[in-house]
Design a protein around this nucleic acid. Structure first.
Lengths: 342, 342
DNA sequence: GCAATCAATGCAAGCGCTTACATTTTTGTC
DNA sequence: GACAAAAATGTAAGCGCTTGCATTGATTGC
């Protein structure tokens, strides 16, 4: 009798069904290579013992895992959560399993996790943004692991990605702001040094500024951490500038929502006293009052496509090609034309 | 020369460093059992080859993985995202890795994932809510995997949990609603059949109702899916009841936020025309206008404690004991006293 | 300088599975 | 009913690692 505190093995099943382990393995992996009779005998042994294949052993023997790894900066951010959820649904439909790790925006952690996911046998990898040590790209390359970057798109980068161009997207939003006559502009942002998406968005703002002959220096910038609360504080800060900004651009909707709240608390009317715009178009953007003008990003679509690209590569060797997704401006009530300050 | 398309193995490192695989293994796992000289030789071989231990092989040989599995209903929900993020941070600090799967609220999927996580060598498991097939609890038990339920607490259940009592929490909110004189009440909820937390919250409302002598039937109930948008639709629905509800209780904040938005669209003033309350106290709750009265749940604290309990059990055999966390009412402006309908 | 001791290292047996190849059984044909 | 071909099953060699035990080498006390 076996120690029943421990998982039953292929051997246990084989013994109970009176066949070899090879046959059991075939029953599980290639059912039609086995007689109906044997198969049902084996399957009932499997049920009886509550057998589940040991993943590590299987991975080692088969050299594939049907597992895809993803590393996101944080779970605690709706944009990633939503994209990854779609990614996972698509994988699941094809019998793949998703392994997620979150890096808290720390490069060192991310590198550890990339190695850990590969060590765990991930057949492919999904990463957010381009920015990382070239050595780690070489490492991935040397292991021959198909890898896709997402949430960003930049044709000058070597690494294949499915995403959108953060710089251009933000630039077009900033242009719209300019078009409405605003010239006194504030930017609430988060640290761009470990976040290339944010860095690109800031560039986009700068470019739009230069196009109308404004110097970057004229921009009132406030850098803070991610969060509604910090967005609110940031808003209070930038509104102290003199002359007061007529529009506040936030690098994401979460900050913008905080700004909207603070404006209300300060008794400012949006967009009459000040306009506020965000980025991402999360569900929240339509809940604020007034609704938020922002850049719509197809998070779920991105996740779905990324999954397809990776699976197609794994299953049929389809090369992974870059895909740029289009984003579009969602002009809502939080952005209005410039008016002379009273 | 090795095929460099494939990961280097312990053997490769051993060869390069001129030692046995046993020594390399010890260098990695018990560095002080090895001479400085050998160690540095081995380590430089490791670096040179970019060696990373194969997880499956290691798990198989060592019978432990320092990995903990968690299954949540969906990533795309701030409350789980936040709790799990804290859980993961705590695990990480102790050198554990988190494996996450999401079940889309489907029991069958969850069962598959429990098995998959165990097969992957998870040393322990974190699950949301109690409700699942007893067979699956037996399965976990038979594998001797420490398991913790969270997001719920019920002393009548056998399974250890760290969470709060959804029924009592919602009841106290409903009592407050009654105390303010409301008697014409609507409830916007989601399917409770696969979600014991929601089912308990509904019970809580029913109990409070009975306490003031109202019959459950007098409650205007609308069941929908999770989401801001669906919450908005639900609100429109329940407000058609005659007589019109004076308060709308939502089983979570997301629905409530949708309700608030719809009320605004309908030109109703909150709380003068109708009160709205939610549950969870997500960040959103303070962004709506007016701010949402809700039940505050310590999501991050819950995640942290769950991690500690599991690690302490794994490392020092500390038994996993149930812990009830306290929640508290956050009374804000969206709830006002009952007034005669105009 | 030598035995006794202890630290450092090596040897080799698994861990649970897949799969190429060998063997047995079944099926179809004449 | 005998034979070849095809289908089903078995055998056994790994996959990459850890670890108990055996071996070697260094250190110590006398």
């Amino acid at each position: 009798m076996k120690d029943n505190r421990t998982a039953p093995t292929l051997q246990d099943v084989a013994d109970l069904a009176n066949v070899s382990t090879a046959t059991v393995s075939r029953c599980l992996n290639f059912p039609d290579q086995v007689t109906d009779k044997t198969r049902s005998r084996v399957m009932s042994a499997v049920d009886r013992l509550g057998y589940t294949p040991n993943f590590g052993a299987r991975a080692m023997a088969a050299q594939r895992t049907r597992t895809i790894g993803a590393i996101i900066p944080t779970m605690d951010n709706a944009v990633f959560a939503r994209g990854i959820q779609a990614f996972q649904e698509e994988l699941d439909a094809d019998g793949y399993t998703l392994l997620i790790a979150s890096s808290s925006y720390r490069q060192d952690l991310e590198e550890r996790q990339i190695k850990s996911l590969i060590a765990r046998g991930a057949d492919a990898l999904l990463l957010i943004g381009y920015e990382r040590d070239p050595a780690i790209y070489r490492f991935i390359e040397s292991r021959n692991i198909p890898t896709l970057v997402t949430w960003a798109f930049d044709r000058t980068q070597a690494q294949a990605s499915i995403g959108f161009d953060n710089r251009l997207a933000m630039r077009s939003l900033a242009r719209e702001v300019m078009r409405l006559g605003h010239r006194r502009i504030a930017l609430i942002t988060i640290d761009g040094s470990t976040n290339d998406r944010v860095a690109r968005r800031m560039q986009g703002v700068h470019e739009a500024l230069r196009e109308v002959g404004l110097h970057e220096k004229s921009l009132v910038v406030h850098q803070t951490r991610y969060g509604i609360e910090t967005g609110a504080e940031g808003f209070a800060q930038v509104m102290q500038a003199n002359p007061r900004p007529t529009v506040v651009i936030c690098v994401n909707d979460v900050l913008a929502v905080g700004a909207v709240r603070k404006a209300r608390e300060m008794g400012l009317s949006i967009p009459d006293d000040v306009s506020i715009v965000g980025f991402d178009d999360i569900e929240l953007a339509q809940v604020t009052h007034p609704e938020l003008t922002t850049v719509h990003v197809p998070h779920r679509e991105m996740g779905r496509r990324a999954a397809r690209a990776l699976i197609d590569n794994l299953e049929h060797g389809v090369p992974i090609t870059a895909q740029e997704l289009s984003v579009d401006l969602r002009i809502r009530q939080s952005l209005g034309p410039w008016r002379m300050q009273p």
